[in-house]
Simulated scan of single mutants.
Amino acid sequence: MPVPRVSVLMLTFNRPQFISRAIESICAQTFTDWELLVVHDGPNEEIAGIMEGWAAKDARVRYFRRLQPGNIAQANNYGLRQAQGEYVAILDDDDFWRVPDKLERQVRFLDEHPDHVACGGGAVCIDLEGRETLRYLRPEEHTDIVRRALLANPMVHSTTLFRRAAAEQSGFYDESLPGFQDWDLFLKLGRLGRLHNFQEHFLAYQIWEGGGSFKAQRGNTWSAVQIVKRHGPHYRSYPLALAMAWSYYAYARLPLGLRKASFSILSRAKKSLFSPK
């Protein structure tokens, strides 16, 4: 097959009930010059069966099974080393793209703006029944993005398209961090070139207790402290960002029941707080 322009990277571990929905949203894109790399960590045989079916049905789907699980950064970097495309898009296995021309518009934007290294968009949060609970955007222009980038992740990971060469130059995802490796990557990319966020809700983002955001809270909050310290000299609002990072760290160590009861509310509040006004 000819080399695709876009490599879509998807990690999967133990959520077979959602993965076909995510893949179908890729297949529905008006831009068709892509490959999908699904990196499967772990022993779930149902996922293996689903992916073997997809690979047989569509030659653009490439399935990689890693029997020895690693952290998210290791799995992402493994996928990036297999990628052939000039651009890389990300999609989590429990989310899906809700805008059919997402890739087409993002590829056109990066083609026309060589000074930009990545672009993303907004998301609509849904519950397990598919009901909308919140929608949010990130700041649009590079100046506004980097002004707030140390306070919260400036890009929604599963909405992004970035230049593979720039990600390689930045060292890809940091495998030493237990979480928030995407935030660290975008802060590194923001020092190499410009960032952009479309003011459209490209993604349906599922918030639930089985999602990675809830499960990885403790590792994520420790990573937040390290990331803020690491990038503090290069971005604004360092004292406030560090105070916020330590407060997240303390919250993640509260009793499990309290965190479960408050996670969705606080997650929605944070997303709303850091959306452009």
Rank of each mutant, 00 (worst) to 15 (best):
A59N: 00
L9T: 06
P43M: 02
A28Y: 10
R108H: 12
Q106R: 09
S20N: 11
N14D: 15
Y78A: 09
F13D: 11
L37P: 14
V61H: 02
A48V: 15
Q106T: 09
K102T: 15
F13I: 01
L80A: 08
G85T: 09
V61F: 03
W54P: 07
F31S: 07
F13Q: 06
Y78M: 09
E104R: 13
D58I: 00
A89K: 06
G49E: 04
M10D: 02
Q106L: 07
I47V: 13
G53K: 06
E45S: 06
D58S: 03
K102Y: 06
S20A: 08
D41Q: 07
E45G: 02
N77H: 11
L11A: 00
H40E: 10
A55Q: 06
E104Y: 07
G49S: 09
M10L: 08
T32G: 08
P43R: 05
I72D: 12
N14C: 01
D95K: 00
D94K: 05
V88I: 15
N44C: 11
Q84A: 11
F96L: 10
A48C: 10
W54S: 02
M10I: 06
P43D: 05
W97K: 00
G85A: 01
W97A: 05
I72V: 09
P16M: 00
E104P: 09
K57C: 01
V38N: 08
S25N: 00
L80R: 10
I72L: 08
E45D: 11
H40A: 08
D33V: 04
D111N: 15
I72K: 06
L67Q: 08
D95Q: 05
V99C: 14
A55G: 01
K102L: 12
A56G: 03
N76A: 11
G85W: 04
A83E: 09
R98Q: 15
P69S: 06
Q17P: 14
L67Y: 09
F31N: 09
F96H: 10
A56C: 03
F13H: 13
E46G: 01
Q29A: 15
N14L: 01
M51F: 04
W97G: 11
I50W: 02
I23C: 07
S20Q: 14
L110E: 10
E112M: 05
R105D: 12
I50C: 07
A89Q: 08
A22C: 12
R108Y: 04
F109A: 03
E35Q: 15
W97T: 00
E112C: 09
Q29H: 13
A75F: 03
A73S: 10
T12L: 02
Q17N: 03
D94S: 08
N71V: 14
Y87I: 07
A73R: 07
F109Y: 06
W97L: 06
F109V: 03
E24W: 10
V8N: 09
R81P: 05
T32I: 00
L37V: 10
Q68N: 06
A28M: 05
E112D: 14
R66D: 07
Q29L: 15
F64W: 00
